[in-house]
Nucleic acid binder design. Structure first.
Lengths: 341, 341
DNA sequence: TTGAAAGCGCTAACAT
DNA sequence: ATGTTAGCGCTTTCAA
């Protein structure tokens, strides 16, 4: 049988309230009684009933996290960082993998709001923010991760995508590339930000993207990225002026692009330098190790977790806040051709 | 304000009980009333309060999952599969990444039992089963994933590790390898099973491991595997009789081993064929694509989830059950040297 | 077919 | 410093 406050109270000839107060470190309890109670709690291995507590306090000490794909290292890293962070303060973490499916995602959000999580963290795979608006009705604090929406003001934690684009493109330029192409992602904030950074970096060096040197992959997310990257690179290589550097929206795309380059009988980085984004594990072991922009996903998770708990614990509404994490470049062989030009 | 049963009851001039019965599809409610109630529920976007419900029924409709490292693709895949599976029946999933730390793991288990999860899934990083015994006191059904313990009878879902070892070793033998080495993992069931399979496969071909051809990596888990694999392979290469094939406990180790082989000026697979385990994503893009045993982690997750929900829903104790999932070999360049011998 | 009463385990406000 | 009362939102049992 699981012990309840009532059991301890009866055992010790005290009232339930006294035990409850000891449990919550209420100050006005005598030293002697407190010790007796604590001792008995230990003996019975007492564990408070969260359901009963939540019913009164309205707090569940849970946080919800919805990601498009838990298998993706970027989201896995974020989830892991959040898990480690919230545990410190006694929160438990609901995690849901929405399988890149907007309808599923919406269903999961509904489920988590029904569970009255104290805060909700969402890396959304929605195209619009419509379904996110409903969260506001529940008055549950919500933080968007990685991807934002134009028409939806919200808390946000993610990498500075414009900086990602600038970092990658500037690096390629510094390696002597003059015809830098970009394989861009779908119409979402991350892809738009990186595209923007790419253009900025080119402009600040009085360069510009040549015709046909910005290629869009389909609406597919990340996971089939290598195939999309292959196809995109094939198109790029068909151009009259062949690029000498490619900044890819993410690493899977970059891997696919590299394969296309190899298949065309060209070399990386000598003929074409390649930079990805995501800093995939084991990049070191690739056929040609891939230079990549690291999104600092651990930091994203940590900041998001901290912010979520802060929101959960605030009595009054907190003004919206956006946290942009700085990316950094991890240089490997796929872009290293200093000395050429 | 969030709607409660009481609100609906008042609006419609009915009692709370009636509304509650409609909510749970209780049969003895008139068709007319039922429809009125359902309509009002829709209008108010009613969502039952899980805490209140749990307090009475004792069920939380939650499942807990503890893994050593959510970033590891093997566990990420399992977690994802479980997430997708339990959602179908309305469960929510607590996931906790224990960071390979037994103390942390124990703490997380305590937290989840305190939350009265309906079932607990654990991929344990403990060395002994001591801390798992306490779970039994809570009468919470528990399933171990991936790794078992000698002295602890439990439900279990994982790959057939002996088959893993046999599959890999037999394949190497069939590729013409005669001096097959093994870089084995730590003293846990998975490593022991694979070692066993390795020996079995050798024995059934009247082969045996040569002296110094079974190397143990440290107690480190998976994540620093590449470094450990490098070191182990260096030792292997220092042997008088050089192996011509290596079965590695997992993929990171195999990657490290391959690097050591390259650094020694040797070729994979011509000089030494290599097989790993785990079937890492992007294995296709490696310097030499890695042959690997796939553990069918998706299936492990799916079976575990199904079994967990069955246990959660059973009124009476269910006999312990072990499910061994069949592995399969994914052949790539690192072991393909048919025609040699 | 509907509803009244009781209570799940706990906390908040108010006595004493 | 300790206890009494009330009630969170819901389900269970039993009566009407």
């Amino acid at each position: 049988m699981v012990a309840r406050l009532k059991d301890i109270a009866q055992d010790l000839g005290l009232s339930v309230v006294t035990i409850s107060k000891v449990l919550r470190n209420h100050p006005d309890i005598g030293e002697a009684t407190r010790n007796r109670v604590l001792k008995r709690m230990k003996e019975l291995n007492y564990q408070p009933n969260f359901a009963a507590r939540s019913l009164i306090t309205g707090r569940t000490w849970t946080i919800g996290l919805v990601v498009p794909d838990l298998l993706h290292p970027f989201f896995a890293q974020i989830a892991k960082a959040i898990s480690l962070e919230v545990r410190k303060k006694g929160y438990s973490l609901f995690i849901s993998s929405s399988d890149e499916d907007p309808a599923l995602e919406q269903q999961e959000i509904a489920q988590l709001t029904a569970r009255r999580v104290d805060a909700l963290l969402i890396a959304s795979s929605q195209l619009t923010a419509e379904s996110l608006r409903q969260i506001e009705e529940h008055k549950i604090p919500c933080i968007l991760l990685d991807r934002q929406f134009r028409d939806f003001e919200s808390n946000f934690v993610g990498v500075d995508d414009q900086a990602v684009g600038e970092l990658a493109t500037t690096h390629l330029a510094e390696q002597g590339c003059r015809r830098i192409a970009h394989i861009r992602g779908p119409e979402v904030s991350t892809a738009l930000g990186r595209l923007d950074g790419y253009k900025q970096a080119l402009a600040s060096r009085r360069l510009a993207a040549l015709a046909g040197h910005i290629i869009s992959i389909g609406p597919s997310g990340d996971h089939t990225g290598d195939k999309a990257g292959y196809a995109a690179a094939v198109k790029l290589l068909a151009n009259k002026t062949r690029p000498d550097g490619i900044f890819c929206f993410n690493d899977p795309i970059a891997l696919g692009a590299m394969r296309a380059i190899f298949d065309a009988g060209l070399r990386v980085p000598e003929d074409i330098a390649v930079v990805g984004c995501g800093n995939l594990s084991y990049s070191d072991f690739l056929r040609v190790p891939l230079t990549s922009v690291d999104q600092n996903s651990k930091m994203i998770g940590k900041i998001a977790a901290t912010q979520a708990m802060k929101l959960a614990e605030s009595k009054t509404p907190v003004p919206l806040k956006k946290a942009l994490v700085a990316p950094h470049l991890v240089v490997r062989a796929s872009s290293l051709r200093a000395g050429q030009s």
